[in-house]
């Protein structure tokens, strides 16, 4: 055997099958308005938005080492921007969502400059302070209802689509589209030069620095891009809810605790993890939701046990057993086809 008997590849049969299956599932999901009931579509829409939030949080914490417990800052910011831009700016809701993303990126720049001064775990609490500042600030804006919040006027809601079912279909497709967009963006980003740099940083910050990777800049880009996308998701979330208040918009439980549990349970630092985590989270929620607070206690306990006993999450367990990767990121060395006979 010599070296030419091998080739380096990212894909594997499992990944090709997964891509095919994924495309099929996607088509079925796009067609949901023709086969799913109203309640199911609502649930699925919510699921896709959580999937998008979880994938974004995973990009930050699992790849860039930026553990934030303050992403609710951007969810709430996006939600409030949707309301402000449509009500006072007269924008179409879809335009407002896009602009909310741009504004989210804009405000994330000074925020990052400030909280990047905090290291590690203190960075995490710093992000929470920022979210509190956002919450308290929006509670001061009386035009948006102050502390009690406000509703989206009927005219704006109707501008989305005339019929109720038309609006529901559209917001379902937007949620599905945002989940697909976010996962695709994360996947492509991780395959890019910057993404490889990120993986290098995660594996060894010191070594990556000595290889000339600008760690600060890479993390900064991830933070700002994540903020923009999170703000857009936030705008979508509150376009579905039609009502916003500071406590709902900047809820640490809804937009950060659940998201963290999803990622930890599914498998942090993998693209597949958030997908599995979201499915399990909604499965648990739909079966245990009647338990109320007990459900949260169970969720917290599961997350702790997984973090201690299987820190790579469920997907990590699956991957270590079967060595599969649905989103091929790693390079593998394979025997070349013509040399399979020895």
């Amino acid at each position: 055997m010599n070296l030419s008997d091998f080739h380096v590849t990212r894909t594997s049969p499992a990944a090709r099958i997964a891509a095919l299956l994924g495309a099929l599932i996607l088509i079925v999901l796009i067609a949901a308005p023709w086969w799913a009931g109203r309640a199911d579509m609502r649930l699925m829409g919510e699921l896709f938005l959580y999937l998008a939030l979880a994938s974004l949080w995973n990009l930050m914490a699992g790849y860039a080492g930026l553990v934030s417990v303050g992403q609710q800052a951007y969810v709430g910011f996006g939600g409030y921007m949707l309301f402000a831009l449509t009500i006072f700016g007269g924008l179409h809701p879809l335009g407002a969502i896009a602009l909310a993303g741009a504004l989210g990126a804009l405000i994330a720049v000074p925020v990052a400059l400030l909280i990047f001064r905090l290291r590690g775990a203190y960075f995490a609490i710093g992000t929470w302070v920022i979210a509190e500042v956002f919450r308290l600030s929006f509670a001061q804006v009386s035009a948006l209802g102050g502390g009690s919040g406000s509703s989206l006027p009927v005219g704006i809601v109707k501008s989305l689509a005339a019929s109720r079912s038309g609006r529901e279909h559209l917001s379902y497709w937007l949620a599905l589209g945002s989940a697909v967009l976010v996962i695709a963006a994360v996947y492509l980003f991780l395959r890019s030069r910057n993404g490889l740099a990120l993986t290098a940083i995660r594996d060894n910050e010191l070594a990556a620095g000595s290889l000339g990777i600008d760690i600060w800049r890479t993390k900064f880009i991830v933070y700002v891009v994540t903020a923009a996308l999170t703000a857009m998701i936030g705008a979508l979330i509150f376009l579905q809810k039609l009502r916003i208040s500071p406590d709902a918009a900047f809820s640490v439980n809804d937009w950060t605790a659940f998201v963290i549990f999803i990622v930890v349970i599914g498998g942090i630092g993998t693209i597949e993890g958030p997908i599995i985590g979201t499915l399990i989270f909604f499965l648990l929620r739909e079966t245990l939701a009647d338990l109320g607070t007990i459900y949260l206690i169970v969720l917290g306990t599961v997350a702790i046990v997984i973090m201690l006993k299987a820190p790579t999450g469920l997907w990590g367990l699956i991957r270590s057993r079967f060595d599969i990767e649905l989103f091929p990121l790693r390079f593998r060395v394979k025997p070349s086809p013509q040399s399979t006979k020895g």
Binding site: V67, V69, I260, T293, I297, I304, L308
Partner: peptide
Amino acid sequence: DILPPLLVTFGLSVIIQNTLLE
């Protein structure tokens, strides 16, 4: 790794908060 202590104490926070609520 800073993740495990952060995430475990975060889980603990949710558990304590909801146990008190209960």
